[in-house]
Structure formats: structure tokens, C-alpha cells
Amino acid sequence: MSTRPLASSAIPGEAPDIQNVLAHQPELRDLFNELYAIVWSRGLVEHRTKEISRLRNARITGCGFCVNVRFERDGEKISESDAACVVDGYEGKGLDEREIAGLRLTDALIGDPQKVDPGLARLVCEQFSEEEILELALCVILGIATEKVLITLGLEPEPGTMATTVLPTPGSVATGA
């Protein structure tokens, strides 16, 4: 693992970060941002459920940047006590059944992925419509794809150096979308 950047910024004079490194591929970056914005801000699944799943993904995939980010939308962001619930054993941490079902789907995607067994499928389908399941799954896998780039290109902060950082949710009014 490297926390030394393995790629340069496309913008002269700037220290490399995920956005200015992806600026080497501006059209690809813009198409990703368009898709990610729709998933986050024009979807069916409530912000909180997606944010809990995103943080679970960040923790398990091991992204030192994403785990410290909180997406805020319309003044709403997850509490730090809820953010702390996404550790193993989250079933007993006060999350509701829909949030737990979302985390179980997230775990299926971020672990060693296999076709979900009928029991998990039933649990997820009891809490989400098919359209919502697809949205949540895309939200998670696009997060995985981004985290893999962040991690493999050494764009994470040094451990312990990044404070919790609130960012506008992709596609929200605050981003100018």
C-alpha cells in the first residue's frame, strides 16, 4: 500500500488529489460524475441509507479518504454516532431494518461476491423495490470503483491525518449541478 501519490495532478502546481488526477481523463471523469450525481441526488433511495452503505464500503474496502467524508444534502448529514455503527455487528447498533438490509446487500457487493442466497434476497426485497435495489447497488459499486482508484494510486491521506470532512452530495444543488 502507498499513501505516496503514484500519479501526478493534471493541473500544474497542485498536489495530486482524486479530481485533479482524473483530470488527465476529463471526459471519463465528467461521465462518471454525471452518473454518480444521478445515483446520489435523483434517485429513489433516501440519502441516509446510501450514506450508511457508502461508509460501510469505505471501511471494508479500506479507503482512508472516503471513510472520513460525510455527504451533506439539504442540510442533512449522518450523525457521527450513526457513522460509527457500520462496523461488524451493525445489526445490534440501532439501525432500522431497511438500513440493515441495505448493509447486507452492501456486504455482498464489497466482499467476495457471489450470487445472493434466497434468504438474503428475501430480506433485501422485503425492504426495497427492485428499482431501489439497483440504485443502491450502483451507488455501492461506483463507490468501490472510485475507492480502488484512490487507493491504488496512493491518493489517500496518511493514516490519522484527515479530519472528518463534510462535502456536498454529488449532484446536489450545493455542487452547482
Binding site: 457471489q114 450470487k115 447497488a137
Partner: peptide
């Protein structure tokens, strides 16, 4: 950078195909 992005997406896509 493009190759890294592509490989990250390929990983994510396989995960989607497998779980569903």
C-alpha cells in the same frame, strides 16, 4: 490513469454481475 479507472470499473462490474 485511464487504465486504473477502467480496472476499477471492471472489478465493480464483476461484483454487480455476480451478486445479481
Amino acid at each position: 490513469v485511464g487504465l486504473f479507472v477502467a480496472l476499477g470499473l471492471f472489478d465493480a462490474t464483476c461484483r454487480l454481475r455476480l451478486v445479481f
